Amino acid sequence: MISFVFPGQGSQKIGMGEDLFGRYPELTAKADHILGYSIQELCRDGERLNQTQFTQPALYVVNALSYLKKTEETGLKPDFTAGHSLGEYNALYASGAFDFEEGLQLVKKRGDLMSRAKGGGMAAVIGLTHEQVTDVLREYHLHTIDIANMNTPQQIVISGYKEDIEKAASVFEAVNGVKMVHRLNVSGAFHSRYMLEAKEEFSRFIETFHFKPLSIPVISNVTARPYEQTELKKTLT
């Protein structure tokens, strides 16, 4: 059994995709047209590449082209797909829920909306369980911090305003059992209460799209179970 998992925000790096844009000139041109700028130039621009509204389209395009290259060279097709946050759009693209252009339109809107939530941050607390992280947040009155992601039983991501994340990180670094607190390379308090306004606007935008039946099961970040066709829009929102 083969699974393809696509990376999300924080995995971007300068020069990514250089070996792909020339290989897929038509899709690269379509990306440039939808975005209104050169995707190749963006991936060379370290300053813009780390800004959410640019990071997400860049990763989506590079992930999509990487997937095409991988399947062409190996002949492999995944039995399951999944993705970390933004990467889930690539998992759905690979499964045929939407085409390359539709996926990029969704991601562009998502990145634009999420970029408005400035001043936020995220950090991965490694070594504690969900329950233990919750207890620490309660004990130290860190009420402005949300638990955003449960990556593994002992890798829990917290999210909130940047200054609050720094305060929380200092607290967690002194807690017995914590192996590491890793600040994530993001510019917003993603997967938290602070994204409610973006969620509401995105829910209206996504209603204009029609999703096709999934040809490959996609594991959802929300449920850790395969997407249900009838719940596609709700789950993405």
Score class of each variant (00 low, 15 high):
residue 101 E to Q: 10
residue 152 T to P: 11
residue 131 E to K: 09
residue 142 L to Q: 03
residue 108 K to F: 08
residue 152 T to S: 15
residue 126 I to Y: 03
residue 111 G to C: 11
residue 98 F to A: 06
residue 150 M to R: 13
residue 144 T to M: 15
residue 138 R to S: 14
residue 112 D to G: 03
residue 138 R to D: 15
residue 102 E to N: 15
residue 145 I to K: 01
residue 117 A to M: 12
residue 122 M to H: 08
residue 129 T to V: 13
residue 130 H to F: 13
residue 107 V to E: 00
residue 128 L to M: 07
residue 141 H to Y: 09
residue 127 G to V: 02
residue 155 Q to M: 10
residue 156 I to F: 00
residue 109 K to E: 12
residue 120 G to E: 08
residue 135 D to Y: 12
residue 136 V to T: 10
residue 127 G to F: 02
residue 104 L to P: 00
residue 107 V to K: 01
residue 140 Y to N: 12
residue 143 H to E: 15
residue 99 D to W: 08
residue 95 S to P: 05
residue 156 I to E: 00
residue 149 N to H: 04
residue 126 I to R: 01
residue 108 K to G: 08
residue 101 E to M: 06
residue 100 F to H: 09
residue 108 K to Q: 11
residue 111 G to I: 12
residue 111 G to E: 02
residue 116 R to C: 12
residue 126 I to S: 02
residue 141 H to M: 10
residue 132 Q to D: 09
residue 134 T to Y: 07
residue 98 F to R: 02
residue 109 K to Y: 06
residue 151 N to W: 02
residue 113 L to N: 02
residue 152 T to M: 11
residue 150 M to P: 05
residue 124 A to G: 08
residue 125 V to C: 09
residue 109 K to N: 07
residue 156 I to P: 00
residue 150 M to T: 15
residue 124 A to H: 07
residue 113 L to C: 07
residue 117 A to P: 06
residue 99 D to G: 13
residue 141 H to N: 14
residue 121 G to L: 10
residue 108 K to S: 11
residue 132 Q to R: 08
residue 150 M to C: 14
residue 115 S to A: 12
residue 149 N to P: 06
residue 140 Y to T: 09
residue 139 E to P: 06
residue 127 G to H: 02
residue 115 S to T: 04
residue 125 V to S: 07
residue 122 M to C: 13
residue 125 V to N: 04
residue 111 G to H: 01
residue 100 F to L: 13
residue 128 L to F: 03
residue 146 D to V: 04
residue 147 I to A: 07
residue 117 A to E: 11
residue 134 T to I: 07
residue 129 T to H: 04
residue 146 D to M: 03
residue 151 N to L: 07
residue 118 K to F: 05
residue 114 M to W: 01
residue 153 P to Q: 11
residue 120 G to M: 10
residue 121 G to F: 05
residue 153 P to K: 11
residue 94 A to I: 06
residue 156 I to Q: 01
residue 106 L to A: 05
residue 133 V to A: 06
residue 133 V to H: 03
residue 110 R to H: 01
residue 109 K to C: 13
residue 117 A to C: 13
residue 150 M to S: 14
residue 98 F to C: 02
residue 104 L to T: 02
residue 150 M to D: 15
residue 107 V to Q: 02
residue 129 T to N: 11
residue 112 D to I: 06
residue 103 G to W: 00
residue 140 Y to H: 14
residue 119 G to L: 09
residue 147 I to H: 06
residue 153 P to T: 13
residue 112 D to P: 01
residue 152 T to G: 10
residue 127 G to L: 01
residue 145 I to N: 01
residue 156 I to W: 00
residue 106 L to H: 04
residue 147 I to L: 08
residue 114 M to C: 08
residue 118 K to Q: 14
residue 149 N to D: 07
residue 149 N to K: 04
residue 98 F to T: 05
residue 109 K to I: 14
residue 106 L to F: 04
residue 95 S to V: 13
residue 107 V to F: 02
residue 153 P to E: 12
residue 147 I to G: 08
residue 111 G to D: 01
residue 118 K to P: 08
residue 123 A to Y: 10
residue 109 K to W: 07
residue 95 S to C: 12
residue 98 F to D: 06
residue 100 F to C: 12
residue 128 L to N: 07
residue 102 E to P: 08
residue 142 L to P: 00
residue 156 I to H: 01
residue 132 Q to E: 12
residue 130 H to M: 14
residue 146 D to Y: 00
residue 154 Q to C: 15
residue 125 V to K: 05
residue 146 D to Q: 02
residue 121 G to Q: 04
residue 153 P to A: 14
